[in-house]
Nucleic acid binder design. Structure first.
Lengths: 212, 212
DNA sequence: TAGATTGTTAATCGATTAACAATC
DNA sequence: TAGATTGTTAATCGATTAACAATC
């Protein structure tokens, strides 16, 4: 649907639009103009119209945008209904939190397996399924063909497992580890560097907050 | 130290530099040129030199940069030793994971209190301290003056608590909730929208991965 | 129809990259 | 000194904003 390759700043804004439109929908707001939406979201109206027009004309001159139609459209663009088969590796504190905190189906993913190497954790029921032994990882992949892996493991483990997963057909990684994938053809990686985020906050706190 | 207000893309790269320099240090690498570092990190050498020169000349012509000096300098710029007093609100799965997974002192923060409203959670020892009743939040703030709050709570709770925390002198928020702070004078907010991150990955998976 | 607001083109702004003189 | 590599200025690139004709 996109006219051509859409720039990454635009794509990163799509979930935000989706979220805000959801809020509007829950407030029973039927239509909204780019100007009203811009005020609510802190973007410019121009940017909103530019962004949306990367994917086609969702609005109507003189009227604006239909909230629920627009939300549904953005959901489709994002692939919210794709149900991409996904495994999660590392059922420690972080892995468990991700598993319980994120509504995978709602975001376009289907969690089909959880793995860990810790004998205390293996077998425990998490998100309705038993944590599997990491030894079963490759056979499991061959059989069930997950396309996405969530990495809640240390850097060293990620470094070791990533090539194996790629070999077994995994195309996308949600990477919470410090392992650096670099650029790999046809593989997409979304890094979540929580510590980096916190350090950015430290910078702000020490340089911009308060009376300066 | 910064010559003048440094742009946000630069600041967001600082933790990454810090992290990579740490790796180099552990490999006992003493010096590195911007070109070598650029190859390792996937930036251009030009960008690295530009970025660093926002804060002063850390290098030496003909030599490059001293790894550990540069790392230490970036750490100081980020405020890694500031020990900003911090409270965490919401000791559910996500809050617990953040508490255990993030090394706060290492990032410039000192965790001094954890709060929840769930009677099952209150009193439980987490990160070496008891989870406090949310009712104690304001008195605690008045007494202990935290400058930073980590919000691992739902949007509604964040909406209610944010103004109270600001009133009590909190200057910085690490916000895992969907609550939208907007722009507030002298208050800095670092949002972590995990679901947004995952949806970005969905987009990539459905549009760029594989043979397209 | 007149008013409103989009879709889209053009102008601006900022960030990245290239180039090179300064200098270790 | 000669070679290497920075610090910094200038050129390019891309993203955001402004403007306006198209149109509901």
């Amino acid at each position: 649907m996109p006219k051509f390759s859409v720039s990454s700043p635009v794509i990163k804004r799509l979930p935000r639009y989706y979220r805000f439109l959801g809020k509007l929908e829950r407030q029973n707001i039927i239509r909204i103009s780019s100007r009203e939406l811009s005020q609510k979201m802190g973007f410019t109206a121009s940017q909103i119209r530019q962004d949306l027009n990367c994917f086609g004309g969702f609005g109507q001159q003189g009227y604006g945008y239909n909230v629920s139609v627009l939300r549904k459209s953005i959901g489709e663009i994002l692939g919210i209904n794709a149900g991409n088969k996904t495994i999660l590796i590392g059922a420690g504190n972080l892995g468990k939190a991700v598993t319980t905190h994120i509504d995978f189906p709602e975001r376009g993913f289907k969690l089909i397996g959880i793995f860990d190497n810790n004998s205390k954790t293996i077998g425990r029921i998490t998100a309705g399924m038993p944590v599997r032994n990491i030894d079963e990882l490759e056979p499991f992949c061959r059989k069930n063909q997950p396309v996405c892996a969530v990495l809640c493991i240390p850097e060293t483990a990620a470094k070791e497992l990533a090539p194996k997963l790629i070999n077994n057909g995994v195309k996308a990684f949600w990477n919470f580890s410090h392992y650096d994938f670099g650029k790999i053809e046809n593989i997409i990686v979304e890094n979540v560097h929580l510590a980096d985020s916190l350090m950015t906050l430290a910078y702000g706190l020490n340089n911009y907050s308060g009376d300066e």
